[in-house]
Amino acid sequence: MYIYIDGKKISAKDGESILEVANRNEIYIPTLCHHEALDDVGACRVCMVEITHKDWGGWRNLVTACLYPVEEGLVISTSSEAVRRSRGTTLDLLMARCPTSDVIRWMAEENGEISVRYEQIDDGSKCIMCSLCVRACERMGCNAIGTVGRGHDKKIAPPFFENPENCIGCGACAAICPTGHIEVNDTRTTREIWDKKFNFVACEGCGEPVLTEEYRDYAIANRDLPADYYTTCSACKKKKLASHFDKVGS
């Protein structure tokens, strides 16, 4: 099938979302809660595009590009006046919620409108509730964090705000967070995340941290690899292999 994005005729497959087609064709649509490997939820509303169709009698609508399935002849505008207004309002609201987040500010600048018009909530939080961390944790099979409560007070947290039992300290939540809200404190021997303290497995060779003990146990139990893979750091592994190669070679 063919669809039209910003006037360009583009081929698309049934079942694809507007965002997928746009990404494949290098047409930029900003996103905050989208991730290629995770299910889309349509929470951030930044990927809003305007759609219409020649058979719709002039009717237009704003939809999220990440979720809307393409259909033959769909006409999409990624930066119409209505799109910019909606996106601008969303980013404005996020700037008021997380005034310290650079990512949000950059995105707002890019949209062409930066004016914090709303009451700022300066509690230091950079969380925009995109739930990427929750979905990443779910993908790891841990479900250690989730959304708690609802409305404006909704938070991302472990169950009962206690040390998350299921957390293995992999840090995927922090790595995926678009605004850098989730804090991880690493020392040479320990990691602290979600108020839970982990001990690192120390490299058998040099004592450098390899991964947390819980993460090692998780990996042994869930990934089909020998347990001794997780005992040494990369540098020591390489060094060992290098001398092994040297011996074999000579």
């Binding site: 991730h35 290629e36 490997a37 995770l38 990443a136 993908r139 790891m140 992999c170 840090g171 995927a172 922090a174 790595a175 995926i176 390899v210 991964l211 993460y215 090692r216 990996a219 990934r223 690899l225 893979y229 997780y230 040494t232 750091c233 990369s234 540098a235 020591c236 592994k237 390489k238 292999l241």
Partner: peptide, 19 residues
């Protein structure tokens, strides 16, 4: 785009080539 940043590939590599 598909990586969630779990970092498990690094310790999993038996030769130490992931960073």
């Amino acid at each position: 785009e598909r990586c969630v940043g779990c970092g498990l590939c690094e310790p999993a590599c038996p030769f130490g080539h992931m960073h």
